[in-house]
Simulated assay, not measured.
Amino acid sequence: MSRHITSAISQCFGKFAKMEFPKPIQNFINRSYVNIMGLDMSEFHSPETYGTLNALFTRKLGEDRTYSLDSEDFISPCDSWISECGDLQEEYALQIKGMRYKSDELLGEHFSKEERDLVKDGTFVNFYLSPKDYHRYHMPTNLKVLKAVHIPGKFYPVNMPSLKKRVNLFIENERVVLLCETASGKRFYMVLVSALNVGVMQVSFEPKIKTDADALQSALFSYDNLYLNKGDDFGCFEMGSTIVILAQKDMLYLNIKAGENVKYGQTIAKLR
C-alpha cells in the first residue's frame, strides 16, 4: 500500500507543531490556538508554559481526576463527544446514524476469526475527540493487554461532515487496535483511529509502534503479562481523533447515549 496524500499533509502539520519558535512567537501561537479552538485550560498549565504547539496538544492534567474505584464501573478513556453507541447487529456497528461498518474489517487480519467474533452482537462506543479536547487517553478498567496491532492507512478527517459522507471512514484510516481482557475474563477492543493532522498516536507501552511514519504493512505485538490499571495514561493523539470500543456481548451496560459529551474518568457503563 502506497502512502496517501493525507499522510503527507499530516506529516507536514506535525513538523510545524513540533517546531519551537522564539518565545514571543510561540506564546502568540499557543494563545491563538487556545482562543480560536476554545480550549478550557482550567485543569492545565497556562498556554505560555508549553514550548511547542505539539506540547500544548499533548498536555497532561495538572492533577489527575478522581473516578470510581468500583471494579464494576467502566470509565470513559478520554474527553470526547459520543458520535454513536449501542449494540452491534451481528458484526455491524454504526459509524453514525444510518451508516454502518463491519467490526471484523475495523479489527483487521491479524486477529483470528474466533477473536473477531468475540464482539458479535456485543456493544460499541465511538468517542470523537475534537481539536479542543484533552488529547490523552486512559485505561477504562483494570485489564490485561493481550495484543496490539498497528494498521497503516489514510488520514481522513473524522469530524461530523466526514462521518456523514465517507463510508468506512474508520476502516480506511490508520489505526492501532488493542485486544484487552478484564479482571473477570471478559474481552474487548480499544481502537485508536487517526485523523487528518494527527501525526502520531502514541502508545506508551509499545515504543515499536510508529504511526504516521513510513510503515506500509500491519504489525502485530503480543503480550503475556502486560497489566494496566483503570486510569493509567497510555498515550495520546497529537491532535483530535477517535477511539472505538468494541466489547463482547453482555459485558457492558451503557449509561450514555449518542450526542453526549463525556470526560475522562466519568463512569459510562457497568461491567456485567
Rank of each mutant, 00 (worst) to 15 (best):
G86A: 10
G86H: 08
S68K: 10
V262W: 05
Q89A: 13
V167S: 13
T267I: 07
E72H: 15
S194F: 01
V193H: 03
I5C: 12
G240C: 08
D212G: 06
A93N: 03
A247N: 02
H138N: 07
N168T: 09
L88R: 01
R3F: 14
T66R: 15
N27I: 05
A247P: 02
T6D: 00
N142Y: 09
D104T: 05
T66H: 14
K208S: 13
L146S: 07
Y33P: 04
K270R: 12
A148M: 06
T58Q: 07
T267E: 01
G38H: 13
T141R: 02
L61S: 05
F16K: 04
G240A: 08
D117W: 06
N54V: 03
T6Y: 07
V262I: 13
R100W: 04
G265Y: 02
D250I: 07
F188H: 13
K186H: 14
V119I: 09
F205C: 04
G231H: 06
N261G: 11
Y101P: 04
G122E: 00
S71F: 15
K165R: 14
K23P: 07
G62C: 08
F155G: 00
Y264E: 02
Y92V: 05
F127W: 04
L220Q: 08
M1V: 12
K270L: 08
E260Q: 10
W81K: 10
F74H: 02
K23G: 04
K208N: 14
H45I: 04
G51E: 06
F127D: 00
G62S: 15
V177R: 06
F28I: 10
I75H: 00
D117I: 09
C236T: 09
H4Q: 12
A213P: 07
V149T: 07
F74P: 03
N229S: 10
K210Q: 13
C78Q: 04
F57N: 02
L192K: 07
K23M: 11
L107R: 02
L216P: 03
M41G: 14
Y264G: 01
S130T: 12
A195Y: 00
K102C: 09
H45M: 10
S130N: 11
G153K: 00
L254G: 06
L53N: 03
R100P: 05
L61W: 15
P152F: 00
V119A: 03
F28W: 12
V119P: 01
K60I: 00
E174D: 11
T211C: 08
V193I: 15
I29V: 15
H138Q: 06
F111Q: 14
D104Q: 12
Y227F: 13
G240L: 01
F21S: 11
D121C: 13
I75A: 05
F16Y: 14
A55L: 13
F124P: 01
M160F: 12
